[in-house]
Each structure stands twice: as C-alpha cells, then as structure tokens.
C-alpha cells in the first residue's frame, strides 16, 4: 500500500497526473510559440503563396544575399533601419521623462490633485493605437480642431496637413507615444517613491538640504534601480518597435520615414506578398534581438550583480 507515497526521487502517480493535466497547455504553447519557428525555413525557399513548400525551389541564402546585393532593396532597408534606430533611440533618450514626472508629481502636496492627475494621465495608455489615430485625426486633420482654430484667427489661410506630410515624422511619433505612455510609465516610479523612508527626508532637512537637494540626493537615487531595469529592457527591444502605432499613422506621404522594421516586414510580407524575403528579414531581426537580450543580461549581471531575466 505504500507505492503512492512520494519518496525523495521517484515522482508519485499524482505527479504524473499533474503533468498530464498541464500537457494540453504545453502543446498549445508549442503550437503557437515553438512550431512557428520552423517557418524560418521559408527564408531559404522561393515560396509562392498557394504552392506547397515541397513544390518550391530551394534557394539557400539567396534572399539574404539579395537583401544586401540589390541596390534598391539595400537603400530601402537602409532607410528602414534608420527609422528603426531613430524611433528606438528617441524612445531611449526620453525614457527618463516618466521618472521625472513621478519625482515632480511627488512634490505636490494636495493629495486629491495628485490622485486626479495620476488617474487621468494614465487613460491614454489604455486605448488602442487605432483610437489614438482617431483622436489625432479629429484634432489635426484638415477640418480638425487645430486647423479651424488657426484659420479663425487668421494665422493661416490654407489648412496645414499635419498628418498627410513627411515633415517631423519622428517627432510626431515620439510625441504621440509620450502622450500615450508617460502617465502610465510614472506609476511604477510613484510606487517606488512612496516606499522611500520618510526619515531620510527629515534627516536631510535638518542638515539644511533644500527641495532640489532632496530630489537629487534622496528621491532620484531611490528610483534609479527601477530606471535601469526598464532601460535595459528597452535596449533589448531596440528592434521591436511594434507596428500598431506606425501602421495606423502611415500613409502615402510619410511612408518613407515611418516604416520601422516591424511595419516593413508586414508591408512586404502580407501586403506585398514577398513571403520569403520578409521571413528572411524577420529571422535576422529575431537573431539580433536575442543577441541583444543576452548582451544586456550579461551587462546587467556585471554591473548590478543580478540578471534581469
């Protein structure tokens, strides 16, 4: 009667049963996360949509070579890489904003005002990019709020094309993502601020520290660890801008500067039907992303003594 008793090494019957109940989910995870990796094989074939892979020609590294050999392809890819780098770098450069948002919001004494600001500034984070675009359209289209205001006061005669233009694409994309994300990004820092020992402030005040000295020497250092983790994560995601934002804002005018890598893969793969070359690009992208992840993790281990993953 003791065969069901779990001993040190041998798993019990219940242990196997537990595994069996988890198995369906392992299969789901395999199907949607691991199995698609096998699709990378399309990057080595000349795949045409309705055919089976076995009917297509094996072309080896042709697409990878074509990416760099073909002049027009190369210049297009170069532009896409420039856009990707620009958007990601701008994102990293502005990543301190939520932290300072939290530091300054913390200086506000009126609790109710603070709570209202905190609630309302996080709303944009919870709407989709499609809705953001709809908002942008309402405000900045030719018949939108801004053009009608400017025209009413005689500042302009013809409506300005804010959306259908290639001017300041990077800047406007940055501003929209800031609008959407700053309030929410600050929440985590605000919680960290709340965790700071009040006695530190009192002691520093006794020593004659002013407001900015307190911010600089107590609040800021308390937030830096959180900041570094988030910074590392955004470095690891350097190539993954996502495509929702850029897809909804893209049009014939700004295409040149708005196409980031993710959007480019979509545009040529799904819209343009160049399955193989799009796969080749996203494969390269994945490999670079994973290497970045490892590098960042290694750096984090070296400098902070702990891995982020």
């Amino acid at each position: 009667m003791q065969k069901n008793v779990p001993t040190g090494k041998r798993p019990s019957k219940e242990g196997y049963l537990m595994f069996l109940t988890v198995l369906p989910f392992l299969i789901l995870s395999f199907i949607f996360s691991y199995f698609p990796l096998s699709g990378w094989i399309f990057a080595f074939f000349d795949y045409r949509a309705p055919l089976k892979l076995s009917q297509c020609e094996f072309v080896g590294f042709k697409w990878f070579v074509a990416l760099f050999a073909n002049k027009t392809q190369l210049s297009q890819l170069w532009q896409v890489m420039k856009n990707t780098f620009a958007m990601s770098s701008l994102g990293i450069l502005t990543s301190v904003i939520p932290m300072f948002f939290a530091i300054f919001l913390n200086e506000i004494r009126n609790k109710r005002f603070k709570a209202v600001v905190q609630t309302l500034t996080t709303i944009p984070n919870f709407i989709s990019w499609v809705l953001v675009y709809s908002v942008a359209f309402s405000l900045f289209a030719e018949s939108g709020l801004f053009n009608s205001l400017l025209q009413q006061y005689g500042l302009i005669t013809a409506p300005i094309k804010f959306l259908d233009s290639d001017k300041h694409t990077y800047l406007s994309m940055l501003l929209w993502s800031q609008w959407k994300n700053v309030g929410w990004g600050a929440i985590m820092y605000l919680a960290a601020v709340a965790g700071i020992d009040q006695e530190l402030y009192d002691a520093a005040k006794v020593d004659g520290a002013g407001r900015f000295a307190l911010m600089r020497h107590i609040t800021l250092p308390a937030l830096l660890p959180t900041y570094f983790v988030l910074l590392m994560l955004s470095v690891a995601n350097f190539l993954n801008n996502g495509m929702d934002q850029y897809f909804v804002f893209q049009n014939a005018f700004n295409k040149n500067h708005i196409q980031v890598l993710d959007l480019y893969v979509y545009n040529i793969g799904i819209s343009g039907n160049s399955i193989s070359i799009a796969t080749a690009i996203s494969m390269l992208k994945s490999l670079v992303s994973i290497s970045l992840l490892c590098v960042v993790n290694f750096l984090s281990k070296k400098t902070r003594g702990e891995a982020i993953f």
Binding site: F25, L26, S29, I31, F32, S33, Y34, F35, P36, L37, S38, G39, W40, F42, N240, D262, V265, Y266, G269, I270, I275, A278, T279, S282, M283, K285, S286, S289, I290, L293, F309
Partner: peptide
C-alpha cells in the same frame, strides 16, 4: 512556458502557422 517570452518567430511564420 517562460522561454516563449523571449523569442518570436515573426509575423510571416505565425501567419503561415
């Protein structure tokens, strides 16, 4: 399960899957 957070097959392979 957790490993799947760190890689992504990409748009086209997912589409074909």
């Amino acid at each position: 399960f957790v490993a799947t957070m760190y890689f992504n097959a990409g748009l086209i392979p997912l589409y074909l899957t």
